[in-house]
């Protein structure tokens, strides 16, 4: 039983590193994509957060990006194996087109997450661990405290730019 929770924690760390890396790589914290994301970033900055991190939180809210890609790829892997992961990537691309986004981050996130999960299955992880892990990881970014999370994301963005 204790081993189970350890697996969930490791899966959380892997998912966190994966989707934050892909989001920062595709320049999500650079600007707010739509006007809603822009407004959310400004509101977070007004309450003591970082501007670039706020824009990234706004982009995650208003369009399915790499975190949604990771979650849906884990779901697809849970129900149907590797073809499920590819189908999840296609669904995320359709969702991105609906939400006025270019769709690079979500699709590439889903594809990369599929292969990462397929690799981790070989060493004893389950796909359900990754579903819970992604939900916990997204909780730490935008569910606990907005100013602290946006400061961490802003520091990562300045380190990349």
């Amino acid at each position: 039983m204790l081993e189970e929770y350890g697996q969930i924690l490791i899966a959380t760390a892997i998912a966190w590193i994966l989707f934050v890396t892909i989001d920062v790589f595709w320049r999500l914290p650079e600007k707010g994509g739509v006007s809603g994301a822009d407004a959310i970033g400004s509101a977070i900055a007004k309450h003591g957060g970082d501007q670039h991190g706020g824009w990234m939180i706004g982009n995650i809210v208003s369009s399915p990006d790499a975190s949604a890609g990771t979650l849906l790829a884990a779901c697809g892997f849970f129900v149907a194996g590797i073809p499920g992961g590819i189908a999840a990537a296609a669904l995320v691309y359709a969702g991105n087109r609906i939400c006025h986004d270019s769709g690079y981050a979500g699709t590439s996130g889903a594809l990369i997450a599929t292969f990462v999960i397929a690799g981790c299955m070989q060493i004893g992880f389950g796909a359900s661990d990754f579903i819970v892990g992604t939900v916990i990881a997204i909780l730490t970014i935008q569910g606990i405290s907005h100013p602290h999370a946006s400061r961490i994301l802003g520091r990562l963005w300045r380190w990349r730019a």
Binding site: V34, R97, I98, H100
Partner: peptide, 12 residues
């Protein structure tokens, strides 16, 4: 004139 209203209708 929100952005979503331009892209959502054809697919949905």
């Amino acid at each position: 004139d929100i952005e979503v209203i331009q892209t959502a209708p054809p697919i949905l």
